[in-house]
Every structure is written in structure tokens, then in C-alpha cells.
Write a protein that binds this DNA or RNA. Sequence first.
DNA 1: CGCAGTCTTGAATCTCCTCAAAAGGCGTGG
DNA 2: CCACGCCTTTTGAGGAGATTCAAGACTGCG
Lengths: 238, 238
Amino acid sequence: MFNRTTLGEVSPVLPIDFLGPVGKSERSPVCKLVAPRTRILLRDFPRSTDFQLQDGCIALFQSLGDGRRQILDILGPGSLLGPSVGSIAECNAETLTFTQLRPVAPLTDPAIGAALKQMLRRSQALATLLGRKTAQEKVASALIDLAERFRRPSKAPEFQKTTFSLYLTRTDLADWLGLTLETVSRCLSRFKRNGLITFSHPEIITIADDKALRLLASGQPSLVPQKSAPDEFCLQSS
Amino acid sequence: MFNRTTLGEVSPVLPIDFLGPVGKSERSPVCKLVAPRTRILLRDFPRSTDFQLQDGCIALFQSLGDGRRQILDILGPGSLLGPSVGSIAECNAETLTFTQLRPVAPLTDPAIGAALKQMLRRSQALATLLGRKTAQEKVASALIDLAERFRRPSKAPEFQKTTFSLYLTRTDLADWLGLTLETVSRCLSRFKRNGLITFSHPEIITIADDKALRLLASGQPSLVPQKSAPDEFCLQSS
DNA sequence: CGCAGTCTTGAATCTCCTCAAAAGGCGTGG
DNA sequence: CCACGCCTTTTGAGGAGATTCAAGACTGCG
């Protein structure tokens, strides 16, 4: 039935809200719980169904022959994963924490298109980050992105400093941002020193100065190119 | 009718095989010929039709506020451009040479999905290039990609060295590969010195040693990540 | 308590960038 | 035809940012 290792398919450790045991023969579309650092195989399963991340975090990545790794995206709750949208490129996926995957009904074409557009937009933003941002800007951008998607319900609703759990290690961040783990660590330390963020545990980050951090992130790609703007052409059918 | 500048909509200079004049009131789906370095507006035209590149070359790019630019893809003959697939992200487009755009009938959803997947695959490959390849590897990768897509019918079919016209300037290459124009120029000079490529005009490149160049390009992303491979999980519904 | 893992920090190195000048191509005009 | 200006490309020298190498600190776990 499985032509790949099935280890880790169902994690030995279950969180409280686990929906119930999953057996091979079961048909009901219950969530699968996957342990941290589990490789998810995207290729060679054209007949597999798609999944949606219920909870947790997954890294999509490509590897170069000599071990260099580039994380292409960090998937959070809501993200889709599967042959319709995920097995597109020559890439692997790995869970970064306990992750719940919910099987979803076959997607309609428009839904697939929408999901693909979302992934493409993020991929393009990553390319701009990788090609044209400095280390500081990269790390700031990453923190803002992660904070928005993995924000924790703040226990003290008064001050509203965003806190989130950084499922990525320094190495993961480095592989995502095209840096080394030392550079990432140095940037984070610097941000901490300068009061942009705070953390006592290395993996629980609090945004202390959201405005300054966003400024440092060098903003999203600007829509009005500063370069010489010669002729313009409206993309319109005759 | 046009709420943007129409300059450059129809180039004043026509190549021999131009299909005929294009008038504003014309309905027939004839090719549009666009002059080099013409900005093509992708946003704000949701009702516009899609186009297919008949001939020529277009750069898709994003700009950062301070003028930094990242080229996200180089489109060649066959590539689609338009609201269905092109106006996705916050990006602009610019022709790099005389370019013919052919209006196409509204795409079916599966066709849009296929086009998006193709774009996503290329975008992810670019991210890996930007994040994890050295300058030399980047330039070598770019040359191989361009050679495959813009190869010229070789006049001497005997030796079969691939020659292609490099529609990109050194600056364009730099903005695509996350480098500076000087670094690009130095890499090209080095490749020339080492016999990997030849060129007398800076924009007509001949691949002299395809094998060595591909080796230098550090290959396509490897499918078997070298990193610690812990558990694996087959993406399959119960 | 001690070990293994990750993270932090420092010093030296290197790749790539910045600044600068010179070379080459191309069109214009004398 | 050649001189001139403009633009892109090439090449060099120096410098900055990120990497590499290495040591030490912190955390969790047996």
C-alpha cells in the first residue's frame, strides 16, 4: 500500500485535541497528525489527495546536489499541500512541528488556480527578498511574515505586542533567507539589542517595535518603479 | 479608451514579418508589436485579455522603494502574459526587444493552472538560484536557460554550437540574478577566458562548452536532499 | 550531573560590491 | 571619412557585508 517509509505517518505523541486514531483502512477524512521533522513526499503520488494544514508548520524546500538547501516557503494553517498545488516543482516538504493535515475534497479548477496564484505571489516576493535585500532586511521581513501567520492569542490583551512561536531553527531561517545560521543569529541579537524584538527562549519571539521592524524590512515591493520609465503600453486587446 | 500612455503601443519601426497595421478600432486578433524597453502595465486591467508572446522577450520584475529591482522571470516565445496569469503579483513587465504579443482566447481553467504551475516552477528555481548559488553558478545557470529558450537556428548545422541573442543587458542580468552588473561582466569575461563561451558582440553569446557550463551551473535542484533524512511520510489519504 | 543539541559571539577570511577609469560600439554631424 | 558624444561593457583597486572557523553559553533530557 505504501511504497515509501511509513514511519512518522502517525505521530507517537498526540496533542489533546487530536481527533482520533487513524488506521490504514479507514475512509473517513480525519486529520493526520505528523511529528516534527518528518519528511513529506510530494512526488510519485499523483493519485494522492490534497491536504490542508489544520495546524502546525511545514517547510517546502529544494536541495542542490552538494547539500545546499533553499526553503521555498513556510506553510502555515490554511495552506494547501498536495499534487494539485504542491508536487509541482522538484521539491520536498518537512514538518517543523507537530502538524495536522486534513484531507480535502478534490479541488475545483478555480480553487487550484487561486491557491497557485497565492503560492506564486509568495514565491516572487521571496525572490525579491533573496536577490535584493540585505541580511537585516531579510530577517526583518521573515519575522513580520511569520508573526502575521503564527501570531499567538496574547494572554494580555492590553498591550498587544505580537508574540509567536518560531517553528524554524536558525538553520531553517538561514536556508529560507539565503544566509548562514550565524548571520541570522547576529541579526536577531541585534534586533533584540535595539529593542525591535524580545525573546528569552530562542524560539518564542515578541515583536516589540512593529513599526520599526516593518521599516527595516524595506517594505513590500514598491509598485512604482523608480527606474527610467520610458514608454508604457496598456495590455488591452485591440 | 486607454487610460494610460499609449506611446510605444505600436512601434514606429516594423520588422519584415509584421502582420499588418493595428488600429484602435480593429477587432481582429492580430499581433501587437511592442518596441524595446516599453513598460507593459499589468495592474488595473482586470478586463483585459491575455496575450501570448509570439516573438521577443519580456522581463517581469518587482521594484523595492529605493530603486532596487528584482527581475522575477524572463518571458520568451510561447509565454503567456495577462490578467489570468500575469497580473498576479505586484509586478511590472518591460519588453527587452521588439516583441510580438498575440491576443489569445480566454483560457480554460486547466490551461491557467498549467501556466501557473510552469511559472511557479520557474519562480522556485529562481529562488534556489538566488539564495544558494554563487555568482558564477548564477550566471552559468542563466546562460543555459536563455540558450535553451532563445537559441538561434545555427547557420552552420555542422558544429552545432548554440548561439543566442542576449536580449538582457548586463544590468538586466544583474537584476535577474541578484548581482551587480560588474560581477556579471566579470563572470562572462571569465567564462570567455576559460573557453566556456565566446562572444565578439556583448549581446551575441555562443556556448562553446555546454557540458562544462552545465557542470558549473551546479545542476538543477537535486531530488535527494543530502541532509539528515529522518522519518518520511507518504502524502496519501487514509 | 553530564551529554547533546542549538544558539550566541568573536576573529579572520572571502566573495561580492562600490567607486573609478578606460575601452568599445554606434549614431550624428562636420 | 573621421571626430565627437553617448551609452554599455570591461577591468582594476579598495572596501563592506556576509561567511567560515572556532569557542563558549544555554537548554533540555537521560
